[in-house]
C-alpha cells in the first residue's frame, strides 16, 4: 500500500475513532453513523470471508476441478441448496435437513465440551489436599475454602424438591444453608471478576486515546 493511502487511512480511522468516542457526550448522529458503518463493514467482510475462505476453496473449486475425487462434497452441496431454498418462504420446510445436520454437530460439540472440557477438569481440579502437612496451613485453608466454595456454589443451583415431612424439612433447611453460603461465594466471584476486568477495559480505552495522540502528529510531520 502506498504512503498516501496509509496517510488517508490513518486520518479516516482517527475520524471514525472520534466519531465513536463522541457517544460519551450522549447519543448523537455522528456516533450512530459510525456505528452503522461498522455493522455494514462487519457484515460485508463476513460475506467475503465466507465466500473466499470457505465456500470457494472448500466446496466450489474442489467440485469444479476434481468432481470425481471430491464426490462426497455433493452432500454439503445438496444441504447448502436446501438451506438456500429458504429464501423462498413457501420452501422454508426444506431447510430442516441442513439445520438438523448443523444442530447435531453443535449439540455433540457442546455435550462433549461440557463433559471433557468443563466437568472433568473442574472436578479433578477441586480434589485438593486440605492436609497442612502437604503444603502448609496457608494452602490447606485456601484449598478448604476453594472446595467449600465450589460445592456450595454448585448446591446454590439446586432446583427441585421441598418436602413437607420431618425428614424433608430437615433436608430443605440443610440445603437452604448451603445455598446461602453458595450465593456468598458467587458474590465474591462477581466482585473479584468485576474488579479485575476494570483495569483491562481501561487499558483498551487508553490504547485508543494513545492512537489519536501519537499517530496523528506523525502524519503531520
Amino acid at each position: 500500500m502506498s504512503d498516501v493511502s496509509n496517510l488517508i487511512g490513518i486520518w479516516v480511522s482517527a475520524l471514525l475513532t472520534v466519531m465513536v468516542l463522541s457517544y460519551l457526550l450522549g447519543d448523537n448522529p455522528l456516533y450512530r453513523l459510525a456505528e452503522h458503518l461498522f455493522v455494514g463493514t462487519a457484515v460485508g467482510y463476513a460475506v467475503l470471508v465466507a465466500y473466499y475462505s470457505l465456500l470457494r476453496p472448500r466446496l466450489i473449486l474442489p467440485l469444479l476441478q476434481a468432481p470425481l475425487e471430491n464426490w462426497t462434497l455433493v452432500v454439503p452441496l445438496l444441504l447448502a441448496l436446501l438451506l438456500l431454498a429458504r429464501l423462498n418462504h413457501s420452501w422454508r420446510g426444506a431447510g430442516m435437513a441442513p439445520l438438523a445436520f448443523l444442530l447435531g454437530v453443535g449439540v455433540a460439540l457442546a455435550l462433549g465440551g461440557a463433559l471433557f472440557g468443563s466437568l472433568l477438569p473442574q472436578v479433578e481440579g477441586t480434589m485438593l489436599s486440605v492436609n497442612p502437612a502437604d503444603g502448609g496451613w496457608g494452602v490447606a485453608v485456601g484449598n478448604l475454602v476453594l472446595v467449600i466454595g465450589t460445592v456450595s456454589a454448585l448446591a446454590y443451583f439446586y432446583f427441585t424438591g421441598q418436602g413437607d415431612t420431618g425428614w424433608g424439612r430437615l433436608r430443605a433447611g440443610f440445603l437452604k444453608a448451603w445455598r446461602g453460603l453458595g450465593k456468598w461465594f458467587i458474590m465474591v466471584t462477581f466482585g473479584a471478576i468485576f474488579a479485575s476486568t476494570v483495569m483491562a477495559r481501561l487499558s483498551l480505552l487508553i490504547g485508543r486515546l494513545q492512537f489519536l495522540i501519537t499517530e496523528i502528529p506523525k502524519t503531520l510531520r
Partner: peptide
C-alpha cells in the same frame, strides 16, 4: 441435574478426603 449435582459433590468430597489422608 440435581442428582448429578449431589453425585459431583460427593465425588469432590471423596476426592478431597483421599488426597488429604
Amino acid at each position: 441435574q440435581d442428582w448429578l449435582r449431589v453425585f459431583l459433590i460427593l465425588t469432590i468430597v471423596l476426592g478431597v478426603l483421599l488426597r488429604s489422608l
